Simulated scan of single mutants.
Amino acid sequence: MRQHLIATQNGTDLLLYFHGSQQSARVARRFTNRSFEHIQATVVYPEGVHRHWNDSRKTLPERTRELGTDDVSYIQDLIAHIPHERVFAAGYSNGAQMIIRLLHDAPGLLAGAALIAGTMPTPENFLSTAQGWIPTPILTMHGTEDPIAPFDGGSAGSRGAHRSFTDSNLYFVQHNGLMPKPRHTRRQGFDVYDWAGEAPVQAWVLNGVGHHVPTTRPVASPFLGPASTHFVAAEAIAQFFGLGFSLDGAGGQTR
């Protein structure tokens, strides 16, 4: 039986946080310093099969792909059983790739999506299609020093080829029907690009950061590369989604 962890119930909107490869709901909470639980929403951590999501990359040598896990239907069913007004999703790495699948295979399911350390697969490495795409607000974040999912695109090892961070954002901009020239600002020491519209795209270039979800207490790991200690990704994501962000948190329960 699939499990999910309800961490907070602080609002009428639902925020799903999708963990990365080899993680679980509890690991994801520690990895993000529980920062997403400060967002004023019902925050839920779903769990992938064998600690992975069956995302839309053709190259995914994991047990969940071998099993043919239908994670799109699982998420749709999970959402149907949790009271909500709107559904937002944030995901890291393999979790970001799962959100990319939801945007393509279940268009309109999400009111907003945040992708951290996960870029679009190249066309030859992509299982889904943009047929039926529904413009959706999308925020992206990616470290320039990411050793696992290269910022400039190319091979991500056993996960196949990916577009660059720049090309991934242009893909979302095009499909959301936005003008190609963004507004550039500097926030928290990072370059931020905004494409305005009914379904905006916002891209954070995390200069000098590796394969991390930025928090003030990042997990130290040479495998993931350098981390930022002055920026909380969850707060920027909450602001983009139009959700409140409070320092008051709550416990969680697994179901």
Rank of each mutant, 00 (worst) to 15 (best):
Ile79Phe: 09
Ile82Ser: 03
Arg30Phe: 14
Asp71Gln: 08
Pro121Val: 12
Ile75Ser: 04
Thr136Asp: 01
Asn125Arg: 11
Phe36Thr: 02
Gln40Ile: 04
Pro83Glu: 00
Ser128Trp: 13
Tyr74Ile: 03
Asn125Trp: 13
His104Lys: 14
Asn33Gln: 09
Pro61Val: 07
Ala111Tyr: 10
Ser56Met: 12
Ala90Ser: 13
Asn54Ala: 06
Gln97Asp: 04
Leu78Lys: 14
Gly95Trp: 04
His38Leu: 00
Glu124Tyr: 08
Met120Trp: 01
Ala28Ser: 15
Asp77Lys: 15
Ala113Phe: 00
Arg63Lys: 14
Pro121Glu: 05
Ile79Arg: 13
Val72Arg: 06
Glu85Pro: 02
Ile79Trp: 08
Met120Tyr: 03
Ala28Phe: 04
Trp53Leu: 09
Lys58Ile: 15
Gly132Pro: 12
Gly91Phe: 05
Arg57Gln: 14
Asn33Tyr: 10
Ile82Phe: 09
Gly95Lys: 06
Pro61Trp: 07
Gly95Glu: 03
Phe88Cys: 02
Pro46Asp: 01
Gly48Gln: 07
Phe36Arg: 00
Gly68Arg: 07
Arg51Thr: 15
Glu124Thr: 13
Val49Trp: 06
Arg86His: 07
His84Val: 07
Ile39Phe: 00
Asn94Lys: 15
Ser73Gly: 12
Ala96Lys: 04
Leu115Ser: 07
Ala106Cys: 10
Arg65Pro: 04
Ile138Phe: 02
Gly112Thr: 08
Thr69Met: 03
Asp105Pro: 04
Asn125Ile: 10
Ile79His: 09
Gly91Trp: 02
Ile134Trp: 01
Met141Ser: 12
His81Ile: 06
Trp53Glu: 12
Arg65Asp: 10
Tyr45Thr: 02
Ile82Met: 03
Ala80Val: 14
Phe126Val: 05
Ala25Thr: 02
Leu67Thr: 08
Val43Lys: 01
Glu85Leu: 04
Gly95Pro: 01
Ile79Ala: 13
Val27Asn: 04
Asn94Trp: 11
Leu127Pro: 10
Ala111Ser: 12
Gly95Val: 04
Glu37Ile: 01
Gly112Met: 05
Pro46Gly: 04
Pro137Glu: 03
Asp70Phe: 00
Asn94Phe: 11
Gly132Val: 09
Ser128Tyr: 13
Phe88Arg: 02
Arg26Pro: 02
Pro123Glu: 07
Asp70Cys: 05
Leu67His: 06
Leu139His: 03
Asp70Gln: 00
Asp71Arg: 02
Ile99Pro: 14
Gly91Asp: 06
Gly143Leu: 15
Glu85Tyr: 03
Leu60Asn: 13
Asp55Ser: 07
Pro61Leu: 03
Arg30Gln: 14
Arg34Gly: 04
Asn54Arg: 09
Thr144Pro: 10
Glu62Met: 06
Ser56Pro: 12
Leu103His: 10
Gly132Thr: 12
Thr140Glu: 00
Gln40Asp: 00
Val44Ser: 05
Glu62Asn: 12
Gly143Arg: 15
Arg57Ser: 04
Arg57Asn: 13
Ile39Thr: 06
Ala96Val: 05
Val87Ile: 03
Ile134Phe: 06
Ala114Gly: 05
His142Met: 15
Phe36His: 00
Tyr74Ser: 12
